[in-house]
Every structure is written in structure tokens, then in C-alpha cells.
Design a protein around this nucleic acid. Structure first.
Lengths: 227, 227
DNA sequence: TCAATCATATTGTCTAACAATCTGTCAATA
DNA sequence: TATTGACAGATTGTTAGACAATATGATTGA
């Protein structure tokens, strides 16, 4: 029933747009981890009523981006080292699944697109502006998830990744790791190219584990442990 | 006016209890897949205001239990065969992770508890009331997740499982499969006993895949494909 | 310094209202 | 007959205002 001309009704309700706006404000770092979200301020910031705002907050809370503290108010979720570790472990499992699914389900076009994106990544030098890098990575994952053709997986992975985005401060500063990252992703791509889903998965998990370790190290270096 | 879901407003915030109550009503099957959730009816059913109800609906919508159709109202999510398949694939990955994490993280007590629960499962005969069986299985998973010591995983797995619960109608009727199920889980438990996380994971995935296949078969048999 | 108390801000919840949108009905028309 | 259009009722989308419950910070008293 959904033709390619179907209009996106979601955009129409203020509610949906508010959720997106608030999510964006958190992901972009405008609302930093630990920040309190005072209702009155938020309603002014977004120009919506209290009711709508509270609905949106409920949504983001159940996505994990916001933490609800009864009678104190919502707070932008702040990740500790333990939560970060847990997040990455789950991400490993999901990313692994995405890779193995992609390997056996993706169309030739999708496969080609993934290779192209990877080539674009490879062509980047460390010095290049981080934005382009982040965007290329996003493209990579978007393509991967499309090819995996599993909306449940896509949703969960996206939600998980949204939570991890807050750690970007930690990982970006350690961008000297880029060559390693590239090598790891390369192994994934090669396995996909070879049609070896199992290996693609293992390599993906290894990659995530490596990224997780970097984050843990940064936590130690910056002594960022909150009590 | 007061239904059996009417809340008495005490401890927690009403909001939180409403979410639980509504979730329970869906999981228990009192609100079946496809059912429309008309706001006025729901507010009477739970004895809360429209605002609170809408907040709760947002929450369950982002858990996937409810589907929001703009300007038509919320509907209890109805699973089609394709969504079911996707759900099970992700579940395989998460359950696999849970098993491997359990293997390397669980305490001796938790390990022992898991074995005990499995023994309880083994002792059950097919004829036994399904309720006891479902409960034992729940215990098994609760224990597994506790031992895995990963709250993120626990949350995601629980949410995923909540969505799958709606398919219980399909799987219950095929309870002749119980001996097979038992054998599959047995292999998982054995791997855990042997401390072989990798194998525990593989066996868990195999188990989930088998369950998924049963569901797919039931979809075909009952010709349950919608539209 | 510490503890009890109070004032204020904020959240939790309810009611009422109106606009926008959906649904079904029924007559008019080709 | 089948399609179109218009209309009425029901439901959702959104706002505003109110009040009680709770948290926070300052003040006072010992």
C-alpha cells in the first residue's frame, strides 16, 4: 500500500517533530549529558505546551537518552564507564548480526554501494575534518543496515548507537586510531566480499571490541569515573 | 466503571504504574494485537487522565508494543510473519550474547541456580499446565540475564521478548515440540557447564532459530498472513 | 556547626476547551 | 449502479490553567 509517493504523516504531528528536535538537541551535544531538562525552559525552547513536551520526554526516556528521576525531573543520560562497556557489548552483537545478514541478503547494488563507501573512507587521511569522517561512517552503517533488511535490527541498532554517540567526545580525541579502525573495517568488508557471513560477523565484533577498549582507556586517562 | 486494571494510586508515580499496567494488559492478551486503543475508553479503564494516558502510550509505542497511526489513534501492534522473523533473528543475537556473557561472568550461585531451573524444566511433562512451563522458562531467562550482568542487554532483551510474547498463541499450540526445546536448551546448559561461551552462544542461536521456524510454519498453517 | 523550619521552584496530575482530522451516511448526479 | 460531494459525529492533536505533592535552598534557632 505504501507507494513511493506516500506522504510522511509523521512529519505532520507536532509531537513527532518535537521528539526529533529534542533527540537532535541531545545528540548534537547542545544538551549535554547530565543536563537537567526543566519543563518550563524546554517548553520555551521548543515553543510547545507542557503536555506535548512531557510526551516527548517519555519517548526519549524509553530510548535511554533521558533518565527520569521522580519528582526531580528528567536529565540527559550520562554514561559511566560500566554502562559504556555494556553498551558496546550489545552493539557488538547487533553489528555482528547486521554484517552476517548483509552478507546473505544484500542486493548487488547494496553490496557495491558498501564497497564504494568503504573506498571513500579509505581515501580519507587522518587530518581530514572529522565531520566528513563521521558522515562517511554513518553512511557505512546506513548502507549496512539497509542491506541487512531487518527493521527491528535497524531500530535497535540506531537506538543503541544514539546512546553511544555521547561518547564521541572520548573517541574523537583518540583519532590517531583511524588507521587501525580502517584496517578492522577492511577485514569486515573483505569477509562480506568473500560472502563469508560468519567471518564478517566475527570481524565486526572484533572491531567493536577494539573501539570499546579505546573508550575504556579514555575513561581511565581522563579519570572520568563518576561515583 | 472500575475494571480490573483500575489502579490504586500509591507508591510510585502514577505514570510508571500506568505504563506497567498497560503493558501488562497487552502482554496478557487482554488487549489483543490489532485492537484500537481509544483514549476515552482507556482513561475509563485505568482511571487516569488523558494526559497521563497519552504519555504512557508514547512509552509503549517506543517499545514497539503499540503502533501510532497519526489522527487515527494507537493500535496494539500486530505482528506479521516478516516482522516475526526479524524479531527472532535479533533475539538470536541477544540471547547468544547473554549466554556467552553468562558463561564468563556469572557467579557460582547464579550458575547453580540456572542448572536448578533447567532441572525443574526437565522434570516437566508435556501434559503439565502450560502456565508452569511458561513461568519456568521466564525464570530461566531471568537467571540468565542476571548472570550476564549487563543491564543494557537485559533491557533490550526484555523489550524484544515482550513483543514476541504476542506470538505465544502460535507457539503454545505447538507444544508437542517441548522435548525438542528441552534438548536444545540442554545443549546450551551443557556448554555453559563446560565453560564454553562460544558454544553456548551457538547453541542458543540454534535454539532461537528453531523456535523461529516453528512460528513461521504456524503462520503458514494458519494462513495468518495479513492483507 | 548542626538541625528544624519554612518559602519557593518544579514536577505530577487533572479538567476543560477548541481545532484538525477521520469515518460513516445520505443525497445528488452522471 | 456507481461515483461524488457534503455533512455530522467521533476521535485525536494541542493548549491553557489549576492545584497537590515533592524537592531545594535559605533561614532561623540551638
Amino acid at each position: 500500500m505504501t507507494s513511493k509517493y506516500a506522504l510522511d504523516r509523521e512529519d505532520l504531528t507536532l509531537n513527532a517533530r518535537l521528539v526529533r528536535g529534542l533527540r537532535e538537541a541531545i545528540l548534537s551535544g547542545d544538551l549535554k549529558g547530565g543536563a537537567r531538562l526543566v519543563e518550563r525552559e524546554m517548553t520555551e525552547m521548543f515553543g510547545v505546551s507542557r503536555g506535548l513536551l512531557r510526551e516527548a520526554i517519555q519517548t526519549l526516556a524509553s530510548e535511554g537518552l533521558i533518565t527520569l528521576v521522580p519528582h526531580k525531573g528528567p536529565v540527559v543520560t550520562l554514561l559511566g564507564r560500566e554502562e559504556a562497556a555494556q553498551l558496546y557489548r550489545v552493539r557488538g552483537a547487533l553489528e555482528g548480526l547486521a554484517c552476517s545478514e548483509f552478507t546473505q541478503r544484500a542486493s548487488d547494488e547494496q553490496r557495491q554501494e558498501l564497497f564504494d563507501i568503504f573506498a571513500r573512507l579509505e581515501a580519507m587521511v587522518v587530518k581530514e575534518e572529522p565531520n566528513a569522517l563521521v558522515e562517511a561512517k554513518n553512511d557505512f552503517y546506513r548502507c549496512l543496515l539497509n542491506g541487512a533488511a531487518n527493521e527491528v535490527l535497524e531500530l535497535m541498532f540506531t537506538q543503541l548507537n544514539n546512546r553511544i554517540v555521547q561518547l564521541r567526545r572520548l573517541t574523537l580525541s583518540a583519532s590517531g586510531r583511524f588507521p587501525d579502525t580502517l584496517k578492522e573495517i577492511g577485514r569486515v568488508v573483505n569477509a562480506i566480499r568473500a560472502g563469508d557471513g560468519r567471518r564478517a560477523r566475527d570481524m565486526a565484533e572484533a572491531h567493536v571490541a577494539a573501539a570499546a577498549e579505546v573508550v575504556q582507556r579514555r575513561f581511565s586517562e581522563l579519570d572520568l569515573d563518576k561515583e
